[in-house]
Computed example of a mutant assay.
Amino acid sequence: MTWRMPAEGELHERTWMAYPSEGYSLGDTPEEHHEARTTWAEVAHAVARFEPVTVVVDPGQVSAAEEYLSADIDIVEAPLNDAWMRDIGPTFVLSEDGRLGGVDWIFNGWGGQDWAQWDKDSKIGALVVERSGAELVDSPIVNEGGGIQVDGLGTVLVTETVQLDPGRNPELSKADIEAELARTIGATKVIWLPRGLTRDQDTYGTRGHVDIVAAIPSPGVVLVHDQRNPEHPDFEVSKAVIDVLKQTTDARGESWEIITVPAPTVLRDDEGFVDYSYINHFVVNGGVIACSFDDPADEEAVAILSAAYPGRTVVSVDARPLFARGGGIHCITQHQPAVR
Rank of each mutant, 00 (worst) to 15 (best):
Y278D: 11
I332K: 02
D269N: 15
I279L: 07
N143C: 13
Q117W: 04
I212F: 05
V237G: 05
L305D: 15
P230V: 06
S255R: 12
I185V: 15
E10H: 13
Y276K: 07
I304P: 12
F235M: 07
I332E: 02
Q113L: 12
E257W: 06
E299G: 06
G147Q: 00
A71Q: 08
D151Q: 03
V158I: 04
P90Y: 09
G125C: 04
N229D: 08
V244Q: 07
T155D: 02
G133I: 11
V315F: 11
R207L: 01
G27R: 08
V244F: 07
L80V: 01
V339C: 11
R252D: 15
E51T: 09
V47K: 06
W40S: 01
H225Y: 15
E171V: 06
E10Q: 15
G101H: 10
H209L: 00
A65R: 02
G311D: 05
L26I: 07
V162I: 11
Y19G: 00
G60N: 11
T206E: 01
R49E: 11
A64F: 14
T38K: 09
T54R: 08
Y19D: 00
T39E: 09
Q163W: 14
T248C: 14
L172E: 13
H330V: 01
P337W: 13
D176Q: 07
C331S: 05
W40H: 02
D202E: 14
G205Y: 00
K239S: 13
L100T: 10
P79M: 00
P90M: 05
T161D: 05
P262D: 06
E257C: 04
A83W: 08
Y276D: 14
G327V: 02
G146F: 00
P30V: 11
L223S: 08
Y278V: 05
E96S: 14
K246S: 12
A7T: 06
A263F: 03
E231G: 13
D104A: 12
R325M: 02
W105G: 07
T161K: 07
Y309K: 07
F293W: 13
S21D: 02
I242Y: 10
V142F: 13
V315M: 03
S132A: 15
V142E: 05
D270S: 10
V57Q: 00
V339E: 05
I304L: 13
H34I: 09
V150M: 14
H335V: 05
L69C: 10
E144L: 01
E96W: 14
R168A: 03
I148G: 02
T203Q: 10
C331D: 00
P52S: 08
H209E: 00
K246E: 14
S218T: 09
V339A: 14
S139Y: 10
F235S: 09
N169T: 08
P337H: 10
V241K: 08
V224C: 14
A36N: 09
A338Y: 12
V55K: 01
H45S: 06
R312L: 05
V274G: 06
L100A: 12
I332S: 05
E66I: 00
N108H: 06
Y278R: 12
L127A: 04
S132E: 11
E77D: 02
R268I: 07
H281E: 03
G111H: 03
H232V: 03
A116Q: 13
V261M: 15
Q113F: 08
V284R: 06
A44I: 03
V317M: 04
